[in-house]
C-alpha cells in the first residue's frame, strides 16, 4: 500500500471484494448449525452469492492491478492469490464483516442485524455501481444487486419476526442490533477513495448511500418494534488494513491449507 491513504482503482475493487469475501467466510460458518434446516439452505445461498461476488471482484482487481503496473507480460494475481496469499494488512474489508457471529460462535440475532446492515448498504452500492463508467464493475454490480436485494429481504423478514416475536426474541434482537450498530459508520466513510475515481464515475461515493440506507433500515427497525441503538461508533480502520484481533484468526483458518502447499493446484 502506498503512503497516501487513498485507494487506486485496484484498491477500490479489492475493498468491495474483501467485504463480500470475508462476509462469505463468516456466513459459511452457519452451515450445519442454523436454527432450522430451511435456514441452512437460505444462509448457504447467501454465502454462495457473496462468495460469487468476491470471486468476480477479486479476479477483476488482479487484472486492474496488472494493467496499472504496466506489467503486461508478468503474472497477474488471480482470485486465489489474492484470497490466500495476502497478509492481513492488505485486506481492505470493513470491521463489520470480520467479527465472529457472537461470543459462542453463532448468535442468530447478530447475524441478522449484520445482514440487515450489510445487504441494505450493498443494495444501494450496487444500484449505483450499475451505472459506473467502469464497464466491468457495472456488469458485476448488475448481477449482484439482484442477489443482495434477496439478502436484504431475508434479513428484513427475520428482523421483523425476531423483533416482534416473543419478549425473549425482542431482547435478543435488540442486543444483536446494539452489537453491530457501532460498525455501520465505516461503510459510509469515503476517506480512503481517490476522488478522481468518484469524479470519473468509476467509483461510488459511499457518503451518498447513507441517507437511503438510513431510511430503509430505520423503517425495518421501527416495524420490528426495535429501537435505533444509541451507541458510539467503533474505532475502525479496515479500509487502511487495520483490523480487529479476530481477523488474524479468520485468515489463519482460511489461508492455512493453501499456504502449506505453495504453488499447488487443487
Amino acid at each position: 500500500m502506498s503512503p497516501e491513504s487513498v485507494l487506486t482503482r485496484a484498491g477500490y475493487v479489492l475493498s468491495l471484494a474483501d467485504d463480500s469475501l470475508i462476509a462469505a467466510q463468516r456466513m459459511g460458518e452457519w452451515i450445519a448449525s442454523a436454527p432450522e434446516l430451511e435456514e441452512d439452505v437460505a444462509l448457504g445461498n447467501i454465502a454462495l452469492d457473496l462468495l460469487g461476488q468476491a470471486r468476480s471482484l477479486l479476479s477483476y482487481a488482479g487484472q486492474v492491478e496488472a494493467t496499472a503496473l504496466g506489467n503486461h507480460d508478468g503474472p497477474v494475481r488471480d482470485e486465489d492469490d489474492l484470497a490466500y496469499l495476502r497478509d492481513e494488512r492488505d485486506f481492505l474489508n470493513v470491521h463489520l464483516v470480520e467479527r465472529s457471529h457472537g461470543p459462542h460462535g453463532g448468535d442468530f440475532a447478530v447475524t441478522m442485524a449484520r445482514m440487515l446492515i450489510l445487504s441494505t448498504y450493498q443494495m444501494e452500492l450496487y444500484s449505483h455501481l450499475r451505472t459506473s463508467t467502469d464497464e466491468t464493475l457495472a456488469a458485476i454490480a448488475a448481477k449482484a444487486v439482484k442477489e443482495v436485494d434477496y439478502h436484504r429481504d431475508h434479513a428484513n423478514m427475520w428482523v421483523l419476526r425476531l423483533g416482534d416475536g416473543t419478549e425473549d426474541s425482542h431482547r435478543r434482537m435488540q442486543a444483536g442490533l446494539d452489537a453491530e450498530w457501532p460498525y455501520h459508520h465505516e461503510l459510509f466513510d469515503n476517506a480512503h477513495i481517490d476522488p478522481l475515481l468518484v469524479e470519473s464515475g468509476a467509483a461510488v461515493d459511499p457518503r451518498l448511500l447513507r441517507e437511503p440506507w438510513e431510511r430503509r433500515v430505520d423503517e425495518v427497525i421501527a416495524q420490528a418494534t426495535l429501537s435505533i441503538p444509541d451507541v458510539r461508533p467503533a474505532v475502525t480502520g479496515g479500509r487502511r488494513g487495520i483490523h480487529t484481533e479476530q481477523m488474524g484468526y479468520l485468515l489463519a483458518e482460511m489461508q492455512h491449507l493453501a499456504r502449506s502447499h505453495p504453488g499447488a493446484s487443487w
Binding site: 430451511e38 439452505v41 437460505a42 445461498n45 429481504d153 431475508h154 423478514m157
Partner: peptide
C-alpha cells in the same frame, strides 16, 4: 417465509 424457503429449496 414459505415462499422464500420454497424458492431456496
Amino acid at each position: 417465509m414459505a415462499l422464500r424457503n420454497a424458492r431456496d429449496l
